[in-house]
Design a protein around this nucleic acid. Structure first.
Lengths: 226, 226
DNA sequence: AAGATATTTTAACTTTATTTAACAGGTTGT
DNA sequence: ACAACCTGTTAAATAAAGTTAAAATATCTT
């Protein structure tokens, strides 16, 4: 059973979410401020944290940083007020895996939780993360992309981008999302830089024609492969 | 076509919603109390239930429990008066997927229905969605339209539009609906842009004369093919 | 710390996708 | 029949993405 730490100071929304998650078979626990959340986190073995950004005592971003110091791979999703762009940027640099802006539908939240569990499952047990992409195998940890017995070492950025693409295989990886996660800021120049890396990755992966890094105009990229 | 069971005792609201959903191409059926709803559910093959919580004879929550006993994965959305916190909580433990508080906008409801349908039926269909259109085959995931051994890569917008047309094959695809889904806004200019794409698609599909993208004046388009 | 090397960003230019504009027909209701 | 609005088509303008190479940073080595 997936254990979720939910930190939300709005009591109405908090208990609502908590009940909903329980009904959906998650083992959800509610904290109503940052300190309480930190204490619960320290004493519990959670699989995922759902943190409101604006909370009394300790805000969600600071809390996420502390959580990440303890467990660098703990999945974190931020709940944030609509379009608080600045918060989102800071959230990513604090190690968020995703964010969702209020108001959101329960379905949307559930979808994101599931997507993250899908992506982190496996890497949670410290097992080496390996992606099979057509005839290639990719090891994000060592940044090695191999094809048969030929192995090629990727640079940091190449590897980070390929890893995001892989973890979103067959679904769209949004430009903004990738830019915030890898470049920490989604300005024009970073976007162009990302384009350059897409070209590089396409070159590395070109020997299997069933692999495509598809551009979704105005949105992002989609890695397509079996 | 998605079949929706709508249970709502307020007759005005009920028929309004029902008509609206039909206009949006859902196969909606209206029940005006809990018992009627239960009977209809038992005799029909619904894809989604939209239940008012306060209803005569059997309330929505009890009804949801019964429905869930029969079909554990039936998506349920509750309609509830604002601030009936307790109802909502209870609703979730009865297995609701989402809830929407009255008064709500039609668009909001539509959005949530779509979110749920995306999750429940998308999870199986996303695998390898392929449409056969006359002598053509269309792969939305890779955006490839093929005719025999000739394959042509569509652009994002072309593909999204063709996909919507295919998923509504031989039924009307409403302009507004398509505009909101693909362009996110249905203003004049986007509508003209859509016209341009219709022209493009017609060009691509012209080699099979049994295929027609028919305009339904003032409403939208209908893709006709075997 | 200087020089060599690898990596990342910026720039310039090319190509492609999408939107807007312009004009020509259609459809509908009065 | 006519006014108002909707649709079809083509071409131009704008915006986004693709590619390559040079410039700027960062990293490594001695």
């Amino acid at each position: 059973m997936v254990k979720i730490l939910l930190a939300e100071d709005d009591h109405n929304l908090g208990s609502l979410l908590c009940e909903y998650l329980k009904a959906k078979n998650y083992d959800a626990k509610l904290a109503t401020d940052g300190i309480e959340a930190w204490e619960m986190f320290s004493n519990g073995d959670y699989d995922l944290c759902l943190l409101d950004i604006m909370m009394p005592r300790i805000d969600g971003i600071t809390l996420a940083r502390r959580i990440r110091e303890t467990d660098n791979s703990m999945p974190v999703i931020f709940l944030t007020a609509k379009n608080l762009e600045k918060d989102i940027l800071e959230g990513f640099s604090a190690g968020a895996d995703d964010y969702i802006t209020k108001p959101f539908s329960m379905e949307e939240l559930l979808y994101r939780i599931e997507a993250i569990m899908r992506r982190t499952r496996g890497s949670r047990t410290t097992e080496a993360e390996i992606y099979e992409i057509g005839i290639y195998r990719f090891h994000p940890l060592t940044q090695i992309l191999e094809k048969g017995d030929i192995s090629h070492k990727l640079t940091t950025k190449e590897s980070e981008l390929l890893r995001l693409l892989c973890s979103h295989k067959n679904e769209i990886l949004e430009r903004n999302y990738a830019l915030k996660k890898i470049w920490t800021d989604d300005n024009y120049f970073n976007a162009r830089s990302m384009d350059v890396y897409i070209t590089k990755l396409r070159k590395y992966l070109k020997e299997d024609s069933s692999i495509t890094i598809l551009n979704v105009h105005g949105k992002g990229y989609k890695l397509i492969s079996k």
